[in-house]
């Protein structure tokens, strides 16, 4: 059973099914986030449906590009023999 699940995520033949399931999950999460009961809202963004989706995506993109910028332009990434 475990092997079948793992294969589903690895094998190329399930590619399109994986993609459809993934987008379906994203849509369901946004819909659920709009419908969910919000009783205690502390901050402005707590009242904004779909905020977490935007923030999650934004964080991810920001982290990737800021880090890679620091690595390449900031000089953090060096050849492996740097300390030798």
């Amino acid at each position: 059973m475990i092997k079948r699940v793992v294969d589903f995520f690895g094998d190329a033949k399930y590619e399109s099914r994986r993609r459809r399931l993934f987008y379906l999950a994203l849509a369901l999460i946004v819909i659920a986030d709009i419908l969910v009961l919000r009783e205690h809202t502390e901050y402005l963004w707590d009242r904004l449906p779909g905020w977490s989706a935007i923030y999650g995506f934004g964080s991810c993109v920001l982290l990737i590009f800021v880090s890679k910028f620091l690595g390449h332009q900031g000089g953090l990434m060096r050849r492996e023999d740097y300390y030798d």
Binding site: L26, S52, A53, Y55, G56, F57, C60, V61, L76, R78
Partner: peptide
Amino acid sequence: GVLMFTALGFVLFLRALDPENTISL
């Protein structure tokens, strides 16, 4: 929401994340 849309970012920008043969200071 935060987690799955992070996954979306990963899927879209996968190539930018390819590991590179380096060490970090």
